[in-house]
Nucleic acid binder design. Sequence first.
RNA 1: GCUCAGAUGGUGGAACUGGUAGACACGCAGGACUUAAAAUCCUGUUCCCGUAAACGGAGUGCGGGUUCGAUUCCCGCUCUGAGUACCA
Length: 1127
Amino acid sequence: MDYQFKDIEKKWQKFWADNQTFKAEDKTTKPKYYVLDMFPYPSGAGLHVGHPLGYIASDIFARYKRLKGFNVLHPMGYDSFGLPAEQYAIQTGQHPVVTTEDNIATYRRQLDQIGFSFDWSREVRTSSPDYYKWTQWIFMQLFNSWYNKDADKAESIAKLVKHFEQNGSAGINAVCDEEILSFTADAWKVMSNQEQQAELLKYRLTYLRESTVNWCAALGTVLANDEVKDGFSERGGYPVEQKKMMQWSMRITAYADRLLKGLDTIDWPEPLKEMQRNWIGKSVGALVRFRISDFPFRNLNAPYDNEPTSKVIEVFTTRADTIFGTTFLVLAPEHELVASLTTPEQKGDIEAYIAQAKKKSELERMADAKTVSGAFTGSFAINPVSGEKVQIWIADYVLAGYGTGAVMAVPSGDQRDYLFAKHYNLPIIQIIDIQKIETEADPTKEGHYVNSGFINGLTYKEATAAVVAKLEEIGAGKAKVNFRMRDAIFGRQRYWGEPVPVYFKDDLPHLIEEKDLPLVLPEVDKYLPTESGEPPLARAEGWKYKPGASSVAPSKSPPGGETLAARADSNEDTAHLTGIYREAADSALYEQLKDFSSDNRKNPTEAEDVLWQLLRNNQTGHKIRRQHAIDAYIADFVSLQKGLVIELDGHHHKLNKEADNIRTEALNHFGFTVIRFTNDEVLNNSQKVIEQIKDKLDSLADRDLSKLSDTFTKSEVQVSPTGGDLEGASADAAYEYELSTMPGWAGSSWYWYRYMDANNDKEFASQEAITYWKDVDLYIGGSEHATGHLLYSRFWNKFLKDLNLVIEEEPFKKLINQGMIQGRSNFVYRLIDEEGRSTNTLISHGLIKQYKTSPLHVDVNIVDNEVLNINKFKEWRPEYADAEFILENGKYICGVEVEKMSKSKFNVVNPDDLIERYGADTLRMYEMFLGPLEQSKPWNTNGIEGVFKFLRKFWRLFHNDAWEFSVSTNEPSKAELKSLHKIIRKVEEDVERFSFNTSVSSFMIAVNELTDLKCNNKAILQDLVVILSPYAPHICEELWTLLGNEAGTLSYTAFPKFNSAYLVEDDFAYPISINGKTKLNLNMPLSLEPKDIEAMVLASADVQKYLDNKTPKKIIVVKGRIVNIVL
RNA sequence: GCUCAGAUGGUGGAACUGGUAGACACGCAGGACUUAAAAUCCUGUUCCCGUAAACGGAGUGCGGGUUCGAUUCCCGCUCUGAGUACCA
């Protein structure tokens, strides 16, 4: 029978699925090999011909490794949370679960028909609760960890607390927020729990804090830096603005150095490593402190540490050696000291400049990079080493977000400073003897210093060390390493993502209990933000956290996040609590608190109800209100006159307890005394509780409201003025969850571990599985993930390693970027008439110079080798039905251009169509044949016939002229063995270096040779089947069974062993070249030594012809390679 | 601007450590089979000169260099693609 690819491919795909042929073993003595493809997002558009490229390569490699005796893990799954399904949900109302399910089904069907050897028993989906349970779990580990710089690893937060308890903050070298407190052990112990928690949040590896984020209003969410391109969202191209919001962040900066160093240990493409290096952006330099010179009563000899921070400007520089060349300082317009530095005379200038800078969008600022602009503040600073007085300017070329937001300008060495100095007539001082600064800055590090005080005459290295030493000596600075990389924002105001396993109590985040994982994504009525701008999860009804099934929540607290816009507390004493205490006096919050209060009143707990019956109607002699809002808190019961808050607590786990303490501290701050009772105390002995309350009330003096800050009084009056007097029914109260969801990269930052043990419901993966599989040996995917997925994955991996949960420091040992497959568009050219109107006449590409035409995209599927199929073209679009053509040589030739593959350009080639016409084996081989895997190239279907012909020719080796299966069992001939072993060696070499295109060529050569030899030898052909099977598995499985082998054994048979003996030649046709130009070939035995070869060459009459009677000056003989005669 | 990658026939590409440049495939041209087309098979196909062949010359983006010999190594430049950008 002729080669019937359709039947064969269907048959074997079914066989593999039914028999789970590619299931990786868990317990085996075989060495492991882990081949992974980058996690796909199942998009609705399905695969185009570019997508499977990497999958085919990895599949060939996986199949090859199985033949080489490895236990291969080759899994596939879906990164199935993401924006497209959610956008579709917003537009159509269809639940993202449904959309995702449909898309995955399409994806799976397309993958299956290409014949991949995935182990589908390990399929994972990030959007499945079984999976994201562990994503949430890892988040919890991050929350409970801090980074110890001395140990250079993450450690448990409990260890940090212990240290604080024993030694205070001394001796802690952590990666943390800038502003941390310094305290003794005793000071720590007397801190309120709230203060302690606030402090700890500055250390946690995932933390909540107000950050400047990329806010995309059109998408209604924040975006990660790598999701923003030139001020627009990467997906959709919507404008992105900078906005301050309360956000979850990941302290990836803790790992900056390890992420950088690790790059040297892994086998990744250099450009990709380079991208990560740039992204991390390490620069080694120094922090230098300049005193502001107009500070009254200033003692310039006083230690820097005694200066108030408002009177010192810190700059970061990578060239501390150039400090004597500093002729002015420049601050970013947003710098916090700008206002206080501006003198009255300069106020107008500065304000105008700031206003103008603010107006400029990110884009304009970038486009405008060449214009020099700035403004003088009127103030001066003192150079700490030279004592020189220099002007302080602001300019938008200094970025607020990098370093300290201020620079020491050295115009002789820095081109931007140079231009600025020229423009504003500021001095330029030469500081190195060989510096040439007539027309531009000279950043040289060669030569010796001049005009530079104590470093005069030194070299770069000496000077840098001397300056840093001096700075440290006088306290004016220190060596410092700066990173460009920022902590990664970890929240999205979106529905279709992992819920963050956090609830809020008294405005502080708390982890839910581990036993409550997974925190399942709730149902919502719409996938849009609420009217008040909260994320979609705020729409989920009754979605509240109830810690512990038996315990009862004492009160409801308002949610955190951006609705409680943090404002700095103006009160000096409490400045360190900024960010924890929130002012509650604004009207938006007032409405919310009022709602919550009345909610709580209507749904009291049993204990609350009992106590209320004893407190109401002045039974204690005092008026008690219940569920009354104070600041951002809602007190269970309160006497406003006495300033007493009575709180009821359930049985809580530790975290609740801590939060309660923080709440107490906050209420104390606002002038309230707090007493607490547990629900049990109230229920078991309410009389005793009442007596204690009475005693407390009697002991307290009336509150003096005049002493309280205006803000508070106002808010107290404003919030819930009649609170507490209403009666209500009962129901259980609970806490608000975090309402943002995790970003797209959360689920993909650890997924390769899940594949190791995909169905484990006890752990994210068992230690046993992790110990065996360790890491990914080969990872194939696109370079678009360079600064996103691949950086975050390395970060989480290192974190998991620090916790001893995994073994390897780096997750992906070897990585290959497959090139992009570009589209190849075809064009027809429409004639434009005299009046400039389009006509219905089309000009062939070769003739367009003679006419005025306009190009139109035409569907590449109706063009064959640039020749337009005119009939199909007429049918393609009704408006072309009666088109006329001006042809060349009777053909209409189309124009060609390489563009992105997209529907709008009519250049999309669908793998389904090609499989229908040629089969999966042909598609697999053709995609490899196209060129080197890493190289980007336009898709062109033209060559696919050649590959199909090759497979048919291969099939024919096993069949006689009547297409009947027929092989002989004779001894193979020498020539046949030579062909076979050539291909064995070639494929081994090629696969090991991922050069799949060249091995496809070699297969063609081998089959051509064996066809010429009329080879139908079973031994030869059976080995050939094994060698080819990674590339074209279906046809090989079929032939394998026809040769009499058991079905399904091909995938695990042994790769044929190469024997060099079959390739040994007796003779070699030496190329004889004269002066390096090959002139002829001369057949000589390989056993000949160079001397004999030389003699034979000179004796040859053919060679003599070329010598022209001259005596060769020299003869070079390379045995087995070449002879070169120099005349 | 900076960083990285790349440039070989009409096209995709091959040449692994400096050793016969253009393998393999597409396309094209010619031929066989056929009433014809498709399919299949055979031959040729880097360019230039030469009517064909033998033969001769040039040739791996451009200009130099090292070498007996360079697509490969070195220096300078041009162009293309990707990433990144007032990063101090």
